[in-house]
Write a protein that binds this DNA or RNA. Structure first.
Length: 1117
RNA sequence: GGACGAUUAGCUCAGUUGGUUAGAGCGCCACGUUGACAUCGUGGAGGUCGUUGGUUCGAGUCCAAUAUCGUCCACCA
């Protein structure tokens, strides 16, 4: 034996060994075919990783995502594709900045305003370096066969350039515009917060009802356009504070009375009979005398709620804002009454400068004084709070940048509708389409510092007197400038020379608030000098950064080097990466240099990609936007398939996430169950429907009992909380994402029992292979010549380098000669029945797994493989060939089939369990360097590059599988009898079988195998076998078995057992007969179904007859 | 409120276009350490497929309603 094979698979050792082996060989790398290279080139297969955020470490959800992508990548690589899996991470603007700011505030009491933009960004880069390193090393531990030379980060040079170019192109095409939008404003932190960063809390509040007086025709009514004119509202006392007693009033309710100062309308339902006659009339806001219209809007007003009438404050309420967009021409501009710090601004008149909550009471008092207060009641109000500051957020109207979505969205819709992009499972196409169908403009600006700063420099200036009085006319002038070369003239003034439209684009617009004209210049990437010129000229760059999704939307082509079509994208230093998971820091301009080449072959070869693997919650945010930008920048979709996999939940049904603190680090599970065990289990989860629930436990370090996780374990507590073991009552620290246990402390580690499934499977595979290898080696002669070869082989270093292929081929040829008796071609029909059976099953499984992977049914593929390996290969085949392996004459053929099945199985399993299969492949290669049927061929150097099994259809033989099934049934029946009567396994029983001559022939062929599996001696078989006296029997329909067990069993009990069996059968027969007696069934069901049922009936009757005969004989004694 | 999914054995889940007696893993019970594997082997117990209707010769599977849970989206003067 070349090496001892341990009885247990050691995952850690294999993982440590084969990861560097593959990396050093360059197996993960994918490159375009060399220019002018001869021979057929491989087709590409591309997967872009759903870039993890650098906000924190990966959890099991990422492990699932990564496992599936690696599985697909390894599978396609084996199929002969140039398989690229592109790795990288996302800067995740809001999340990362918030995380760093939070830490800073907690640890040092500093806010970002204290340290400034530069210093904050510097801190975030440091954070990013730490977590990027951690994330990439987690992925590597998973066995992720990414092309690590190509790792990208959304803020690196290559991605930044793509962002700048896309923004520039969109700006040039007029797709980018500025507009107002309601955001969730955190008055404490003075920043906008995203919708998913606010949470609702029930708060004690009040529900006031007020009224506004309706303005009679001709009385103080102003032109609509002037309703928002500040001059008109600057002097409320100029208007009558007291409405005439007879004036009609309109009542409404509010929880935020101060927003009355910003009302621009009141709204009623168009069919509300109480108010229909008022629609189009006006009311006066008593607080400031402003006159606002009464509008009809069926979406905003609800006849059944409150008074049926609602005040409209577009600047401070999302619904009101939506109403405003529908009724703009009647209402005029929204009026913002807030300062960024939550105090009221100049639009609040006398209340300017007061905090909004102070002003609220003052406004109520004033309304009461003026006689427009009706009532107030206490009420619980759901109020949005900022997750970060825990203070209430205010809806706040602010200037934002948008991408116009109509055409872009339509193109992405078309791509899914005409099948250029296909979803697996199909139903997710619907979420994609319905979201895109809204075509809501994409707000791309964020009031953050961490991200891609918007590449626009602008200059505001006062126009000539009266120039901007008419908004529409001004806009026309601007449009003309924007659409002609007059914009270029403007730029040549700034830059002192004529600049090309490919370098800079200018747009002039009107700021409706300040009545100034705004000159905005957008620069294409790579124009740092011009940026300086602009600043010197007095332009200032936008403070805001771009939405994170803007850069991740470009991921599929940005990572391939777009927009550079002349050079391949730069690679990180290959070879010298042994020490580090770290990437090259790309913040410096000269950190990387592009690979020389005449064109970007990487981009043209690898775009478009093949499949995107992700979970459903980012179909809209990310998937749709990648399709949209791919079509826009590249003219083609970024991927053909979108594979949506389940989400991982904890034991309580909560999705695992960083923010919930319920995430489990895959590394913990890899260390406990082995990487392959984890991967195999996780792949078995990935079906089409259900999310995956993973009940978590903690293993008591004192007694190894498992303590189930409870919700309170996940809550953050100060100090180092301990967990108490229910069994041994001892306490220990435990690991959660919230803190790290103390050094040297005994820690209750995470366990998830479901992962034993995969671990046990790996161990089973290991031992099956161990058995095979032990039995492949034995037949060798131990001549001096062989030993010399073995020594020579041992002396040569492990075949790590690529050029070792030749030498290993040499040695394999040499080793081959030792198995010369097996070299010759082995005809299929000369093989034993179990050989042909296992080959047939193998061919079927190969076909199944391949077609299941084609449609991303990982769970079914995993099951199919497990069932084959465990229940067919191990339980039946290995058991059946044991007698043959002890028989020198029959041994060689069994060995040949055994090694072939093992070889193919390892290849089928490699994408699922890469480490153990490589470990076994390399060991097997030493023992059997050539294998296969009918003629052995040298095995590949590594299973990672071995060809995926295919073309095995000739091995399939369904008739033979059916014959084998009968044999299996017979053996199970004997075991059943043994089990029922508790016959010691040490005791060999005798059996005679009454069956057809054909079955008898089969049985004779596998007699020794049968006898060893059933622990029985076969005394007779054939159609004429008679039942021996005092025997226990079974009936299988087409064959009956008789076991003389007199003295061992109670024959009365046997009679009872047979009676029970007969009764059961009679029940079935009655059912079947009834069915066949129903004319509607016989007449209407398809003939083949009826024939099937008739056959069933015949079999049941035959079987019953056998049992009845047995019972009769038992009665005789 | 809208869309989608789920509900099958004690637990976690499969169940392909409707067709004989609904499956697996874990757990449970009994027996077993025979030369690959106790992370194992052999046998066994355990389910009126959430509920109610309907279509059909026939429904876990198709349709309708309903309940519960989950996810996404919208909304809550």
């Amino acid at each position: 034996m070349p090496t001892e094979i341990p009885k247990q698979y050691d995952p850690a050792a294999a993982e440590a060994k084969w990861l560097p082996f593959w990396e050093e060989r360059g197996d993960f790398n994918a490159d375009p075919p060399p220019a002018g290279g001869a021979g057929p080139s491989k087709p590409p297969h591309v997967i872009m990783i759903p870039l993890p955020n650098v906000t924190g470490a990966l959890h099991m959800g990422h492990a699932l995502n990564g496992t599936l992508q690696d599985l697909l990548t390894r599978w396609r690589r084996m199929q002969g594709y140039e398989a690229l899996w592109m790795p990288g991470t996302d800067h995740a603007g809001i999340g990362t900045q918030a995380m760093v700011e939070k830490r800073m505030l907690e640890a040092e009491g500093l806010t970002r305003h204290d340290i400034g933009r530069e210093a904050l960004i510097e801190r975030i880069w440091k954070w990013k370096d730490v977590y990027e390193t951690r994330i990439l090393s987690q992925l590597k531990r998973l066995g992720a066969s990414c092309d690590w030379r190509r790792v990208r980060f959304t803020l690196d040079e290559v991605c930044s350039r793509a962002v700048r170019q896309t923004f520039f192109k969109m700006f040039q095409d007029g797709l980018i515009f500025r507009g107002k939008r309601l955001v969730n404003w955190d008055c404490f932190l003075q920043t906008a917060v995203a919708d998913d960063e606010v949470s609702e809390e029930e708060t004690d509040g009040h529900f006031w009802t007020f009224n506004y007086p309706v303005v009679e025709e001709g009385q103080g009514l102003r032109a609509e356009g002037q309703a928002t004119d500040k001059a008109s509202s600057s002097d409320p006392l100029a208007l009558s504070p007291q409405p005439s007693a007879t004036a009609q009033r309109i009542s409404f309710s509010t929880t935020r009375p101060e927003t009355m100062l910003g009302d621009t309308a009141v709204c009623v339902h168009p069919t509300d009979e109480r108010y229909m006659h008022l629609i189009g009339k006006h009311v006066r806001i008593p607080l400031n005398g402003r006159v606002i219209p009464i509008v009809a809007d069926a979406l905003l007003a609800d006849k059944t709620l409150g008074t049926g009438c609602v005040k409209v404050t577009p600047a401070h309420d999302p619904n009101d804002y939506a109403c405003w967009t529908r009724n703009k021409e009647q209402m005029g501009e929204p009026i913002n009454i807030l300062n960024p710090d939550g105090t009221l601004n100049e639009n609040a008149g006398p209340w300017q400068g007061q905090d909004r909550l102070v002003a609220r009471d003052a406004v109520v008092a004033e309304m009461e004084r003026l006689g427009h207060f009706e009532k107030v009641e206490d009420r619980k109000i759901p109020l949005k709070h900022s997750d970060r500051s825990k203070t209430p957020v205010e809806p706040y109207l602010s200037e934002q940048w948008f991408v116009k979505m109509d055409t872009l969205a339509q193109n992405a819709i078309d791509a899914a509708n005409d099948g250029r992009v296909t979803f697996y499972p199909e139903r997710y196409k619907q979420s994609y389409l319905s979201w895109l169908g809204e075509k809501r403009d994409w707000c791309i600006s964020r009031q953050l510092w961490w991200g891609h700063r918007i590449p626009i420099w602008s200059l505001s200036e006062q126009g000539q007197e009266g120039y901007f009085e008419n908004v529409e006319a001004s806009q026309q002038v601007f449009d003309e400038i924007n659409s002609t070369d007059r914009g270029l003239d403007l730029m040549s003034q700034v830059f002192g020379e004529v600049v090309s439209r490919d370098v800079a684009t200018v747009r002039i617009s009107l700021d409706e608030t300040t009545r100034q004209q705004v000159i905005s210049i957008c620069l294409a990437p790579g124009n740092e000098d011009r940026e300086k010129q602009l600043v010197e000229f007095g332009f200032t760059q936008e403070e805001d950064v771009l939405d994170t999704w803007f850069s991740s939307a470009l991921w599929p082509h940005a990572t391939l080097g777009w927009p550079d079509t002349e050079h391949n994208p730069p690679l990180a230093g290959q070879g010298a990466r042994a020490e580090g998971q770290g990437t090259v820091k790309n913040s410096g301009p000269s950190a990387l240099s592009p690979q020389p080449s005449a064109k970007n072959e990487v981009l043209s070869y690898f775009y478009p990609g093949n499949v995107l693997v992700t979970s459903r919650d980012i179909i809209t945010l990310w998937v749709a936007r990648m399709v949209l930008t791919g079509l826009y920048n590249m003219g083609d979709v970024p991927f053909k398939h979108v594979c949506i996999h389940p989400k991982i939940q904890d034991g309580f049904g909560q999705t695992m996430s960083k923010s919930k603190g319920n995430g489990v680090d895959p590394i913990e599970l890899i260390e406990k169950y082995g990487c392959d065990g984890m991967r195999f289990t996780i792949a078995s989860f990935a079906g089409e429907t259900q999310d995956v629930r993973l009940p978590v436990g903690y293993e008591c370090p004192h007694c190894q009992a498992v303590i189930p996780q409870e919700p309170h374990h996940l809550k953050f507590k100060p100090g180092k909380p301990k967990i108490k073991c229910a069994k041994c009552k001892k306490e220990s620290q435990y690991a959660t994402p919230n803190y790290t246990p103390d050094e040297g402390e005994l820690v209750a580690r995470i366990t998830i029992e479901r992962f034993e499934y995969g671990r046990n499977f790996c161990n089973k595979l290991w031992n099956a292979a161990r058995f095979a290898m032990l039995n492949l080696g034995e037949s060798r002669d131990e001549s001096g010549e062989t030993r010399a070869r073995e020594e020579a082989l041992a002396a040569s270093p492990p075949s790590l380098a690529l050029d070792s292929r030749l030498s290993s081929l040499d040695s394999s040829l040499a080793l081959d000669s030792r198995l010369s008796s097996l070299d010759s071609s082995l005809a299929l029909d000369s093989l034993a029945i179990e050989d042909r059976w296992i080959l047939s099953r193998l061919a079927t499984v190969t076909q199944e797994v391949t077609s299941l992977l084609d449609i991303y049914k990982f769970d079914a593929a995993t099951r199919s493989l497990r069932d084959f390996v465990w229940n067919e290969f191990c339980d039946w085949y290995l058991e059946m060939i044991k007698p043959r392996l002890r028989d020198e004459a029959r041994k060689p053929a069994a060995q040949r089939v055994l090694v072939t099945v093992l070889d193919t199985t390892l290849r089928l399993l490699h994408p699922f369990t890469p480490f153990i299969t490589e470990e076994l492949w390399q060991r097997l290669k030493e023992i059997a360097p050539s294998r296969g049927l009918p003629t052995p061929t040298p095995a590949a150097d590594a299973v990672i590059i071995a060809p995926w099994p295919s073309g095995l259809e000739a091995w399939r033989d369904t008739a033979l599988e059916a014959r084998f099934q009968r044999l299996q049934d017979l053996i199970v029946a004997v075991r059943n009898v043994r089990g029922t009567y508790n016959i010691s396994p040490a005791l060999t029983v005798t059996i005679s079988v009454r069956c057809s001559s054909a079955s008898a022939a089969d049985l004779e062929q596998v007699r020794s195998q049968f006898e060893s599996l059933a622990k029985a001696t076969l005394t007779a078989r054939g159609p004429d076998v008679a039942r021996p006296k005092a025997s226990v029997s079974f009936s299988l329909g087409d064959s009956d078995g008789f076991l003389p067990l007199e003295g061992l069993v109670d024959l009365a009990a046997e009679r009872q057992r047979q009676q029970k069996e007969a009764d059961k059968l009679r029940g079935f027969i009655a059912g079947t007969e009834k069915k066949l007696g129903t004319s509607s069934f016989v007449d209407r069901a398809p003939p083949e179904v009826v024939a099937d049922v008739r056959l069933t009936l015949t079999n049941q009757q035959k079987q019953l007859a056998s049992i009845e005969e047995i019972i009769a004989q038992l009665g005789e004694g």
